[in-house]
Design a protein around this nucleic acid. Structure first.
Lengths: 236, 236
DNA sequence: TTTTGCAAACCGACCGCCGGTCTTTAAATA
DNA sequence: TATTTAAAGACCGGCGGTCGGTTTGCAAAA
């Protein structure tokens, strides 16, 4: 098997296991069995279990960056068009990623995956920060924005854009259907409020920043329902 | 030794070790040696290493809650006075906690403590959410606020109030003094911007929400400098 | 075309150490 | 003295990781 191929296979297997069982609870044996490779074979390609996680994280970071970088390289009539283009791509990324592998995506937010999810968020945060800071920097230069520090503002905006995850985690802790529905609505409200918060923080008129993709909250809620409840609406 | 006493001693020892070495890298042996107790002795008081961490977290949560709860129980001329009172206490808490044991506080933000720090943040977030949501709820009832959902808004505000931590982490990764100074300034700017962001998100006039305690950023920066650099300004 | 040389890929027994258990002992309390 | 509580420490299974040895693939030599 070619090195590249083997590496990717190991990353794929580990990713699935980490997301479903959690990083700590996935043993090397699990990964080796799943990939059909021996310990020696594995440690030929990766230095440690942690480096494996690092590799998984890097794939996501690269994916995010290759999606977002082109936004910076196009020409736009006004700075606001650049700004909107950035969020269009971001929204598409979020929506696609979630919809494509919903069960896996949902599982990632379980409590047992807290550490893993945190490292993932951090990685993606850093991947985004550079690019979004540049977007804001251009806004400052063009006079469309007035900020004490574009990088700090960018970091703040990105953090704001993650707050719906707290409600997703809460939704995953639901003990009955009505609680899930209530929390699901909060996911949606959170996404709306995030847009408003970023607008106001940057000093833009309400409605410029849109993070809320249509049906996103509903899809997530449905995914969580499938994970937690059976057909009768009983907790699994 | 009395049970309560022993428990607290174990919590104290473990807390110091977890913060300085990280949770994963602190072994039971370390804790037992530091507390001068045997395995059997320890496991008589705690069910597991994780329950020990839980205990440490709970102490912080209780500390936060006992500081903040009284704010809700007082009478105020206007809702805004309650709002200001809340942040006065929050600011005092943050400042005191940091100043009292600066080196330990700073260490907590090292990369190796990411998981620990995350659990701590989560615990304190949840402890605060309930109380701050009630503060906002009262604002909505009194007509001083107009929000789609007080709880979601409270969560968002609390998340905004943690964004300076990202810059603290970045500061801890400084490789030279000038980088540390630059990042230290970002901590301060971040604290200012946080206040503005929360104000605007809630629809209050700028300047109502103040998270930035005088000298906080400078203290932190000094603490990090002591941790990372020797007297000549060289990286340790 | 066949042989040879050799590095890359792979194997799996083995290691040290970790968190946690269990049986035993000592001290306190009644 | 009888009973409960606190503490001790040898011990355990299983974890992540190592290491010496084997196989494989392929280019160069014969």
């Amino acid at each position: 098997m070619k090195p590249e191929e083997r590496r990717n296979q190991l990353l794929d297997c580990a990713q699935m296991l980490f997301f479903s069982k959690g990083f700590e609870d996935t043993t090397m044996q699990d990964i080796l069995a799943s990939a059909g490779v021996s310990k020696g074979g594995f440690y030929h390609h990766f230095k440690s279990k942690d480096e494996l996680l690092e590799g998984i994280l890097n794939r996501f970071v690269e994916q995010t960056q290759t999606a977002l970088r082109p936004v910076l390289e196009q020409e736009y009539p006004t700075w606001l068009d650049l700004y909107h283009a950035y969020f269009d791509v971001l929204r598409a990324q979020m929506s696609d990623g979630a919809r494509a592998r919903l069960p896996l995506f949902v599982m990632m937010f379980q409590d047992r995956n807290a550490a893993l999810q945190q490292r993932m968020s951090d990685a993606i945060y850093i991947a985004n920060l550079e690019i979004f800071a540049e977007v804001l920097q251009r806004g400052v230069r063009s006079g469309d924005l007035d900020l004490p520090d574009a990088e700090v503002a960018a970091g703040l905006a990105l953090k704001i854009g993650t707050t719906h995850q707290d409600w997703m985690r809460k939704a995953l802790r639901s003990t009955d259907l009505s609680e899930l529905v209530t929390t699901g609505q909060k996911i949606d409200i959170s996404l709306q409020l995030q847009g408003i918060a970023i607008d106001r923080m940057l000093g833009l008129p309400d409605g410029n920043t849109c993070i809320r993709a249509d049906g996103f909250a509903d899809d997530i809620t449905a995914g969580i329902k499938d994970l937690l409840f059976d057909e009768d609406g009983q907790l699994k």
